[in-house]
Amino acid sequence: MSPDLRTRLANVELANPILTAAGCAGAGRELAQFFDIARIGAVVTKSVMLDPRAGLPAPRMAETPSGLLSATGLQGPGIEVFLQRDLPWLLARGGRAVVSIAGGSPAEYAELARRLSDAPGVTMIEVNLSSPNLADQGRHFTDDPAAAARVVHAVRSHTRSDIPVFAKLSPDVPDLVELAVACVQARADGLSMINTVRGMAIDTTTMRPAVAGGVGGVSGPAIRPIAVACVYEVHAALPDVPIIGMGGVRTGTDALEFLLAGASAVAVGTVIFHDPSACVRILREFEEELEERGVRRAADLVGAAHRPMGAQPAR
């Protein structure tokens, strides 16, 4: 008997826990050339902003060991085009849409939330808090739990009540649990973690930073242990808050690891660049991992690593 893969994120149920990570799958259109986008739990879109955004100059990416260093600067067409072109396309293909949003002020985030609540078919909103705060010299909202909380509160207040709001957290903070608690107190329904890890590479031929932005974000399997630790610690502090875990997921085993740490769903990011079919491959591998262990329900495994020895489910 095949295991029950359904997972619950606040009041939303997804058919399985494998999602795309924001910024690694567009709005699903490119990947749909390689697999049926409706088969995965949901597509988390590239962060949408109010206005079109050209992003940062090239070079935007450099390969690092088991990772990528990137600084793309949230290039995108803006909410108008997203609502007219990208979202309807994804919904028409039967995809579940988790829309990532980014802005420069709580008001911009709120406006995005309102526009998305008016559009039919949005399953969830993910708030990308690693965006420069225009009122604070461009420091990221995640740098200040109070600023992050203001954004989350603004989004929650302007989002239809049946649409869960998840706050996406950066690992580059002094106290991740403090940030997570601040977001939950501001009525975030769940948390997504982690965003990229700050990093840099220098091209020894040109003797210049390898990406035009100088410092960028590291992603890929290189950061997986960092991500697992973040999910584990936040789940321990806030066991009732659903978490979407991400950071270097490459195989079904990696996805399972995130569930055991406390994630209710797992997003696949950078590995999609390496393997455009990664999401469906990981979904298949994840299902096989459960079968091998005789686990009947994926949801039973969420946070299992926190239980005392001998209290793990099934087998």
């Binding site: 799958a25 490119e30 992003g55 070079p59 935007r60 990416m61 390969e63 660049f273 455009p276």
Partner: peptide
């Protein structure tokens, strides 16, 4: 001949 990371249009690296 711009450097690419994915080739499929999702990584936003190879812009001109």
């Amino acid at each position: 001949e711009e450097t690419m990371a994915c080739g499929t249009g999702v990584c936003m690296t190879c812009v001109v």
